[in-house]
Amino acid sequence: MLGRAANGVFWMSRYLERAENTARLIDVGFHLALTRGSRQSQDEEWKSVLTTTGLLDDYCAKHADFAGHQVFNYLLRDRDNPGSVLSMVENARTNARVVRTSLTNAVWETTNEGWMHLRDLLARPVRETNLGEVLTQIRRTGTLVRGAIEGTMLRNEVFNFSRIGTFIERADNTARILDVKYYVLLPSAAWVGSSLDNVQWDTLLRSVAGNRAYSWLNAGSMDPRGIARFLILDGQFPRSLIFSYEKIRSNMAGLAKQYGHEVPAHELLRDAGARLHQLTIEEIFEGGLHEFLQDFIGKTIEIGNAIAADYRFNA
């Protein structure tokens, strides 16, 4: 397989995953803003969404306030914003076009149709009345493409690179969501695990589509440590950090098996994965949740870069 093609499927999957997560963040931000009374606390919600996506500075360079429709339109359809859903879906589709010969027709067509559909939906400014529909369509595009990949692709290197892209992105996104909420809600480390706003923690779970699952597992009761354990260390939850790493590991193992040898990225991943498996939630809180997440995000970036280098993504 060409290094450039591996890069293409990797990024196609990453962009789709990120677009979907951005849609989910907007959904949560919107719901929270609706339930918040004051303009100031609404602004805070939108600001935290922008911080999570890493776009706060760019947004502020362009806009003076945090009016909801302005923020979600920026995140959904601003062509100057490379992190907008429209830009990312376009990037995913461009990458799919580049690697079209590595994809099945079903995967290419789902990606292409998803892009055509979203491009039309996002051609005009999104209003609060159709925001829900737009967000549903974005999530559905990601779901359909993943389904097409799962259902039609050979389980070979192309599949592996695609899955690695998905889960590198997911691990990163979940960690960032957790970190921003930690930051915004708990400015003082002394507060951790003591005084928590249930609505905020529920929001956090919704941001990663984990509220139902968590409630079901914990019979409706919520506590911050439980939530953190769920998002970081629960191997059953498909958006947890440990689950994402397990998927990266198994797909990297698939590559090693096909190619007959490991690369340095395997070693990096093994170290990071082992650490995650050994840690308890108590130890994480002891060492500082924020520090842990920062370290995790850094490691994940490092692993992604190592994979790109070891498998010759770029000339």
Binding site: L255, Y311, A315
Partner: peptide, 16 residues
Amino acid sequence: NDLRVVDGRVCMRTTT
């Protein structure tokens, strides 16, 4: 940019 001359042959950059 996938291609390069290596040992007198035109070669493509694969993942391996």
